[in-house]
Design a binder for these strands. Structure first.
Lengths: 159, 159
DNA sequence: GAAGGTTGCGTGCACACGCACACAAAGCTA
DNA sequence: TAGCTTTGTGTGCGTGTGCACGCAACCTTC
């Protein structure tokens, strides 16, 4: 088994920030994903789509989901397929653009999301409680706001 | 195109911290991965293995790479295959345990890593410069250290 | 209205990943 | 030694993802 130190010794503070961000994000999402899959048979990618749909009063265009989530456009298309098969979302043709498809949660989708979201909060509590204080959480929120504001950090290739 | 606000309105600070970590980690790794792939034809997973190998003076057991990186054991096996095919690493049988395989960078591997690492630092500079200050970076390093310290946050399923 | 370019959505293909399993070698017990 | 368990490593298989492409609808210009 390895040494205690998880990082090479010649890391700069910026290197630590980068690797810590990637490592923490990956580990957290893996934990939530596994809990959602085990308890609700619901991948995190599905959950993320439902999260955005829930926050919107109006049906959301598929292109908007691709722009606003971590998912690529093709992945949005497939995730919506799966959610629709389970009756959790519905596709609504746009009244003004015959190409555009708007997506909305069904009643069953709202219920499934609430159950899954409780699991997500539970997992987060396990990891965060007694570990990160309010100052840490505030710092993370501030850093995220800064990164979001820079287009170079937001643009990703979508397919 | 979406609204300015990238998050639902009913997010708690903890939700922001979680989503920000996942989002920032995913976006950062995607940017670095794309730059490495485009300029050096080197996936980020390969780079991560080389990063750990470079920091060690002695050859590293494959199991240690699986424990210390974000990669699963099976993925380590395959990545080492690929790196070996390109002559960037070599497998060295352990003198004390005939099951164990120790892995080390070749001379070409050291050179390839240095070139790729320059690209990584360059991408990081694009994203971080004039955006995150020293306090932010220090905060991230501290938060990462806390998360690492908790086994529940570290354990991942490996295959 | 016709032609050319753009946008929105979906899909075939290749690839990477995790899981379960197989196998060999080591350790442990009698 | 024999037999069982544990550990280190590698691989077949199924699944999910991104990329490149296709198609249809929209928009602009003439």
């Amino acid at each position: 088994m390895a040494q205690n130190n998880l990082t090479p010794g010649d890391f700069t503070p910026r290197d630590h920030a980068f690797y810590g961000l990637v490592w923490a994000g990956s580990t957290l999402s893996a934990r939530v994903d596994q809990a959602l899959a085990r308890r609700h048979d619901l991948p995190l990618s599905w959950f993320e789509v439902m999260l955005w749909l829930r926050a919107q009063k109006e049906p959301v265009a598929a292109s908007e989901l691709g722009a606003v989530t971590l998912l690529s456009r093709s992945q949005v298309s497939r995730v919506v397929d799966s959610l629709q098969t389970r009756g959790l979302v519905e596709r609504i043709p746009s009244p003004t653009d015959a190409r555009s498809v708007r997506i909305a949660l069904t009643e069953a989708g709202h219920r499934a999301f609430e159950e899954a979201d409780a699991t997500r909060r539970e997992v987060l509590a396990e990891v965060f409680d007694d570990l990160l204080d309010d100052a840490d959480i505030a710092a993370l929120a501030g850093i995220w706001a800064k990164l979001k504001s820079r287009p170079a950090a937001r643009d990703r290739l979508k397919g």
